[in-house]
Design a protein around this nucleic acid. Structure first.
Length: 457
DNA sequence: AATCGCGCGCAGTTGCCTAC
DNA sequence: GTAGGCAACTGCGCGCGATT
């Protein structure tokens, strides 16, 4: 196994309660270029009085150095980095210093990802612990080593800037807005954007402000980030959504729409300063399935409402979130998405889940946002079971299941060891008012399957 | 010229302790 | 019971000089 590098900065012996920022910055300024001298100075300043061996005192100072490197304050030779120099210059103003540190953590060290994850945990009604943070962050593709206290040190620094309440993970949103000029809400909006939309925005932040031709930005985004755009649908898939969210302004290239329309003129709005928007987008890129996170925080009720959203992208996400919510209710683990809602105009998704309780099982969940599920729809899913090695098919629809479709499902269940669970619009309405109703629905389906599968011995 | 071995720097792991 | 400070340990990989 390859040891994976931590996504969050190493922070041992860099806690604001162990060292003080201004003095270590001064030490780095004084001994920069000679890390041995720097470590020695740190050791003498902070760890000499410790009741431990000399080698361990050295190790503690060494950890301080490593942490400062991880936080981007100094380089390998203990020279102040550009950011470190900036901090150094403001070292006499404690308030300013802590704010700069917090901004750096939030923008460049996955701070916003951390905060968003904390919000998710809290929204789920659970308390934030290091163990839970590791699990939830890991699920998002953000890793820190087991037993590590990386988030704790980040928390302590953010607390110094007033962004987190003392000794807690409660976010002071007003302060966050003040320090960063943005909010969790904004970050959520960015998270929901598609990879194409984010790449487009990033490309826009990379060039000087002003007005540009929309297709040239698309080219730039492709060249820089390797994201392919559907050129025919650039406005529909990228430009309009970004405009609606207030990030760009659009102007028609040609006065009267007609033949040979020119591309749009695009201008980035002042909604964000480019120096903030870029890092935030970069951070979101490291997250796995970032688009789903904000939706998953919503209630089942709200998700069902989103199913009738105007934008197909949102409808597709809501459908996926619905599958997540339902399957999480019965403690199944997400494995992957086979077919995205965004590819089907928000009409259907296919997700795979696994359950490891008592017996291992793999579930194939198909969610449909259409009036009717037909025999063909189920037949298609059955055909996939071989390929996907699933034992359970779940068909969720906001509409109804056709009679022929039901009969077909029954036949398959009688003849094979497959289980087909159907949840229709009526069931969803029940689950909406009372989420545990899903257990009733599943029990009903299980009984149904059992009667069909009676063995004749 | 190739490779070997060693020390070193680094990152992670584990466990203990105390304060809250 | 958890966080976080403190301590000690493990293991990896790289660079470098010694060795073949």
């Amino acid at each position: 196994m390859v040891v994976r590098k931590s996504d969050l900065p190493f922070g041992s012996e860099f806690s604001p309660s162990q060292i003080e920022l201004a003095p270590v910055l001064e030490l780095a300024d004084e001994y920069g270029g000679d890390w041995r001298a720097f470590e020695k100075a740190v050791r003498e300043t902070y760890f000499e009085g410790y009741n431990t061996s000399d080698s361990n005192k050295a190790k503690l100072a060494n950890n301080t150095k490593l942490s400062m490197i991880a936080y981007g304050i100094i380089d390998r030779d203990a020279n102040l980095t550009e950011f470190g120099r900036k901090l150094y210059e403001m070292r006499h103003n404690e308030e300013q210093l802590y704010v700069a540190m917090a901004r750096h953590i939030l923008l460049n060290l996955h701070g916003m990802n951390l905060i968003q994850c904390v919000k998710d945990i809290q929204a789920a009604g659970e308390t934030v612990t290091l163990i839970k943070l590791r699990a939830w962050l890991d699920e998002r593709g953000i890793h820190f080593p087991r037993g590590g206290k990386h988030p704790s040190i980040m928390r302590l620094w953010l607390e110094k800037a007033g962004i987190l309440q003392p000794d807690s993970w409660d976010v002071n949103e007003t302060r966050l807005q003040e320090v960063l000029g943005t909010s969790i809400k904004e970050f959520d909006i960015l998270s929901i954007f598609t990879a194409e939309q984010r790449a487009y925005l990033k490309a826009l932040t990379n060039i000087e402000g002003g007005t540009h031709l929309s297709n040239e930005i698309a080219k730039l985004a492709t060249a820089t980030y390797g994201v392919a755009f559907d050129e025919k649908n650039l406005p529909k898939q990228v430009l309009y959504p970004l405009q609606r969210a207030g990030y760009i302004k659009l102007e028609r290239g040609t006065k009267s729409p007609g033949r040979g329309a020119k591309p749009f003129y695009v201008t980035i709005t002042e909604r964000f300063k480019a120096d903030i928007l870029g890092p935030l987008l970069e951070q979101i890129d490291t997250q796995v399935r970032s688009e789903l996170r904000p939706l998953l925080r919503k209630s089942l009720d709200q998700i069902l409402d989103e199913l009738s959203a105007k934008e197909t992208h949102i409808r597709g996400l809501a459908l996926e979130a619905l599958a997540f919510k339902l399957m999480h209710l019965i403690d199944l683990e997400y494995v992957g998405t086979r077919l995205r809602g965004s590819e089907t105009g928000g009409a259907e998704v296919d997700l795979i889940f696994e359950g490891a309780r008592l017996v291992y099982s793999r579930w194939q969940v198909q969610c449909k946002n259409t009036a009717r599920v037909s025999l063909d729809d189920i037949a298609k899913e059955v055909g996939l079971t071989h390929f996907l090695k699933t034992n359970v098919i779940v068909i969720v629809t906001t509409g109804e299941i056709g009679t022929k479709a039901r009969q077909y499902a029954n036949k398959i269940m009688t003849d094979s060891n497959l289980c087909i669970v159907t949840i229709d619009g009526n069931d969803l309405a029940q689950i909406r008012s009372k989420p545990v109703a899903i257990v009733d629905v599943l029990n009903r389906e299980a009984r149904h399957a059992m009667t069909l599968k009676t063995l004749e011995i």
